[in-house]
Amino acid sequence: MWKWWLTAVGLNLVLGVPAVVATWLLWYFLANGPLLEYGGEMRNPTENDGTGVLLVLLAPVVGFALLWWIANRPVRRRIPVGRPLYWPVSLLVTLVPTLGLVISSGS
């Protein structure tokens, strides 16, 4: 049982490295799009390309999410105990490299 959980943790830590880019792109889209209206960051005055560019930024995020799901499905099927916890734990482990970079940057 534990070998599959260790496999899941290792897989999601490896997937967490490219997730840094996908997470940044998602944050960039949200900060310059939907969250801007709710008192978020101010828009850069030279960034006047419209929302088409922001939507292009979401393509790698969707691609990574699809890759993450496809990679995790076979491992989840083999875990005998704790299946309801698999997806939340996998998501949190995938975000560990991003959180590590955010914490180490000091901001």
Rank of each mutant, 00 (worst) to 15 (best):
V14L: 15
G50K: 11
V53L: 15
A59K: 06
T51R: 11
V75N: 04
W4K: 15
L58D: 09
T94D: 01
L58K: 09
R73I: 01
T23G: 11
G39F: 05
L11P: 01
P88D: 03
V9H: 05
G63S: 10
P84I: 08
R83Q: 15
L99W: 13
V75M: 05
L11K: 06
N12M: 00
V20N: 02
L55G: 08
T46N: 13
P97R: 06
G33E: 09
V96K: 01
P34K: 02
S105D: 10
G39D: 00
F64M: 12
E41N: 02
D49Y: 10
I79N: 01
L57I: 11
F64H: 11
P45N: 06
A31Q: 09
I103H: 03
S104H: 07
W4Y: 14
P18F: 08
F29K: 00
G39C: 03
L13E: 02
T23W: 04
V62F: 12
P34F: 12
L67V: 14
L58Y: 05
Y28C: 00
S104Q: 01
L57A: 14
N72M: 03
S90F: 05
T51Q: 03
P60V: 04
I103K: 03
L54K: 11
L36Y: 10
A71W: 03
G16L: 07
F29G: 01
V20F: 10
W69R: 15
L101S: 02
L30F: 10
T98P: 03
E37L: 05
V21D: 00
S90C: 14
S90L: 03
